[in-house]
Design a protein around this nucleic acid. Sequence first.
DNA 1: TGTTGATTCAAACTTGCGTTTGAAAATGAA
DNA 2: TTCATTTTCAAACGCAAGTTTGAATCAACA
Lengths: 239, 239
Amino acid sequence: MNSNRSQLGQKVARRKRPTAAPDPTREKLLEAAGPIFANCGYQATTIREICAGAGANVAAINYHFGDKLGLYTEVLQQSVRAAQVLAVHNAPDQNISPEDMLRALIRARLRSINGKGLPDWHSRLLAHEFAQPTPALRQLIDKLTRPIYKRLLELIGRIIGLPPSDDNTRLCAISVVGQVLAYVLPGPLLTEIWPELRMTPDQVERIADHIADFSLSYLKDFRSRHGTITPVRKQRLSK
Amino acid sequence: MNSNRSQLGQKVARRKRPTAAPDPTREKLLEAAGPIFANCGYQATTIREICAGAGANVAAINYHFGDKLGLYTEVLQQSVRAAQVLAVHNAPDQNISPEDMLRALIRARLRSINGKGLPDWHSRLLAHEFAQPTPALRQLIDKLTRPIYKRLLELIGRIIGLPPSDDNTRLCAISVVGQVLAYVLPGPLLTEIWPELRMTPDQVERIADHIADFSLSYLKDFRSRHGTITPVRKQRLSK
DNA sequence: TGTTGATTCAAACTTGCGTTTGAAAATGAA
DNA sequence: TTCATTTTCAAACGCAAGTTTGAATCAACA
C-alpha cells in the first residue's frame, strides 16, 4: 500500500556501490537497530531512538527500508544469516561417534548463541520473537531452528536406537534443547538467580560440556534400560 | 503525579463489600485482562480491548486501578498468588528420598505451569516478563522463583553430595529448570517443532516423568563418578 | 423522600508513535 | 556548468494509545 517509491529508490541506489562502502547511513541504521530491537522488542522500539543512535533522520528508515517492519525483518535476516555461517563453521566432522557429535552440536549452539561469535544481543532478539512473534518469525524457524532440530533428532535417535519421530526421541531432544535455552531465554531471571555467572568463552565451553555430560548419561544407557526389541512407550504423546 | 483521586475513591469504595461480591466490574476487568496481557504482553495490550472484553468503560481502569500498570501489577500478583497456593498444595511429603522429592517437584512445577491447576495463560505471562521485564518482575522472582530454585539447589546438592552453592550443583539445577522451561517459554517454537503435541494432564505427567528420569540418570551417578572426597571442579564459573 | 457518596459513562484531551511530504542538499554524468 | 537523480532533512500529518473530565446514574441511609 505504501513505500513503492522509496523501495525503488533504494534498489537503484544500491547498484552504484560495488562492495567497498555499501551505503553508510543504511549500514548505520542496521547497526543501531540490532541492539535496540533486541533490548526492547519490536513493539516497544521507536524508530526515533534508532535514528538518534544512527545519527540519521527519521525519514531515512522509510527511505531505505520502506517501514519499521522492513527494517526489523532485515535485522532479523542478518542475524539469522550470521548464525547460519557460524553454525556451518562450527559443524563437526562426520567421522566421529554420535555421542561426540552431539557434544559438538551442543557446544556449537551454545557458542553461536552466547560465545564470541555473535554479539550477545542476537539471543535477546530470539527471546522476544518467542514471546511475541512477528511476521518474520516463520523464516527464522524454517531457516535456522528446524534444520538444527531435525539434525538433533536424528543424532539422538541413533544414540538411543529409536527413529527420529519416536516420542522418546523427541522428549530427549527437547530435554537437550531446554538446557541450552535456559542460558538464553530467561536473561533477567538467570542473572537474578546466579549473579556471579559470567559468560566468558571458557565458561561457555564448560557449560556446554556439562550439558553434554548431563544428557549423555541418560542417552547412553537408554538402549540397555529399555531393551532394543520393543521400545517401551507408556503412552503416545502425539495423537 | 496522577491518579490520587481515583485511588482514594477505590480504597474507600472497597470497604463496603465484606467478602461476598467484591466489586463485579473490578473482578471482570481482572478476568478479562489476564489472558489479553498474556497473549500480547504489557506494551501491546490496549486498555480499550480489556474494557471491551469486560464490558466496562475505559475510565473504569483508571478508577479501580489508578492506571494501566496498576491493573497489570494486580494481574501479575494474582497469578503469582495462585501459583503459590498451588505449589503449597502440591508440596511433596518430607519423608521420601531426595530423588523422589525431585521428581515430585518437577511434576508440581510442570503441572502448575501447564496442567489443570492454572489456566494456560499464566505461563505466557511469565514468558513476556522474561523477554521484557516490567517493574513488577522483581516481586515475581522474589516471591515465586527464588524460593523454588533455592529448594531445588538443596535437593540436588543432597543427591550429588555437594553444597547448594557449588558450581556443579548450580549447573545441574539449571539443567533441570531448563527442561521444564522448554515446555513453557518458547510457545510458538514448540508447536512448530512438535505440532502433534497436546498438553493434556496425562501427558504433562508423562513429560514430568521423562524429565525426572533424564535428570536423575546423571545425578544419581554423580557421586560415584566424581568421588566423594574432593569434588572435581575443572574451573570455577563464578568469580 | 432527599441527600450523600460511590460508580459509570461518553466524550474530549494529551502524548507519542509511524509515516508522509516537499523542498533542500549532494552526487555524478554529459 | 547544467541537468537529472539520489539522498537528506525539518516539519507536519493522522492515528491510536493512556488518561482525564464532568455530568449522569446508582445505592444506601436518615
